Computed example of a mutant assay.
Amino acid sequence: MLMTATFLKHFDSIAEPRIERCKKHNLLDIILLAISAVMSGSEGWEDIENFGHLKLDWLRQYRPFKAAIPRHDTIARVICRLKADEIEKAFQTWISSLLEGTGCDVIAIDGKTARRSFSTKERKNC
Rank of each mutant, 00 (worst) to 15 (best):
E88K: 13
Y62A: 05
V38L: 10
Y62G: 01
I48C: 07
E49T: 06
F51C: 04
G52T: 03
D47C: 04
R81H: 14
P64G: 02
W45P: 01
K83Y: 02
G52D: 02
E46C: 06
N26E: 10
E43I: 00
N26V: 02
P70C: 12
E46N: 10
K66F: 00
H53M: 09
L59D: 01
C80T: 06
R63E: 07
I75S: 10
G52M: 05
A84C: 00
I48K: 11
C80H: 13
R21D: 08
L59V: 09
K55S: 06
K24Y: 14
K55N: 12
D73R: 14
I30M: 03
W45T: 03
E20D: 10
L82F: 11
S42L: 03
H72F: 06
R60V: 04
A76S: 14
R71F: 06
S36C: 11
K66D: 00
R21C: 02
I30D: 07
I19R: 13
R81D: 15
H25Y: 15
R60H: 03
E86R: 15
I69D: 00
V38D: 11
D73H: 14
L28G: 01
A76Y: 13
N50Y: 12
L82A: 10
L27H: 08
I75W: 06
I69A: 02
C80W: 00
I30A: 07
W58K: 12
E46W: 07
H53F: 12
S40A: 13
I79H: 13
R81C: 15
G44E: 02
D85S: 15
R77G: 04
L28Y: 03
K55F: 08
Q61D: 04
V38W: 05
R63P: 05
M39C: 14
A68T: 04
H25M: 00
I79V: 13
N50I: 07
C22W: 15
